Amino acid sequence: MKQMAKHILATAMLGSALLSGSVMAEQKIGVVDVQTVFQAMPQAAEISNSIQMEFKDQIDEVNQLQKDGQFYAERLQRDAATMSEKDKKELQQKIQGVREELAKKGQPLQQNIQRRQNEERNKLLGLIKQAIDSVAQKGSYDLILSAGAVSFSKEQFDVSEQVLEQVKKTN
């Protein structure tokens, strides 16, 4: 309860400070759409391609396993009526073996790709943060907000292009 009272008091003080005309006139505020900057970065496409190349052999292996499993399943469905019980059983065992192999290789591969994508995404977000800091410093901004946290802003406050240009310079 005490913590909530402090939070309400701090919010009220911040709100009243922002509403005062003299404070508003002196502040320079910008808005940046981080998602748009991220997607427009040339490094983002390069990283996606490099991750695909890094895991290419494993992806190809999993794709081949999927094709094999599909082939065996279609063959079993198509030829089951004319196959002997022994042949059916062997084909079902092959299908089961492919499924087990897919489970053994597919999920870890997916997790490794996801982990690498997260690592690289975090590096790019760090570059974006540095670019935002640089734009804020050069432009003497007091506050730069994420576009996702703002309900409305005029286009004149959007510094996304400046941030993107700064990110391109750092590459």
Rank of each mutant, 00 (worst) to 15 (best):
F157V: 06
A17L: 09
I59E: 00
T11E: 04
F152K: 09
V34I: 06
M13V: 01
L125V: 03
S134V: 05
D133Q: 08
L91E: 13
A73R: 07
A136H: 08
A45V: 04
S84T: 09
I144C: 11
F55R: 12
E120Y: 01
L145V: 07
L164F: 13
F71H: 02
S84Q: 05
V37F: 08
Q92Y: 13
E100D: 05
D158Q: 13
E161R: 02
V163R: 06
T11V: 00
A73K: 09
A103N: 03
V37A: 05
E85T: 15
V34Q: 02
S20D: 03
E100W: 03
A80D: 06
A80P: 03
N63Y: 00
S84I: 08
S22E: 09
G148E: 11
S153F: 11
V23W: 02
N171E: 10
A10G: 07
K67G: 10
K123E: 12
E46L: 13
A44C: 01
H7E: 15
T36S: 02
A45H: 02
L125P: 05
D68P: 10
M83H: 01
K168Y: 03
E26Y: 08
K154V: 08
I128R: 07
S22H: 08
M24H: 07
Q58H: 15
V34R: 03
L125H: 07
L19W: 00
E26Q: 12
D79C: 12
A80S: 10
S48L: 05
E101M: 13
G69C: 01
T11N: 03
Q39V: 03
N63H: 00
F38P: 08
P42A: 03
K86I: 09
V34Y: 00
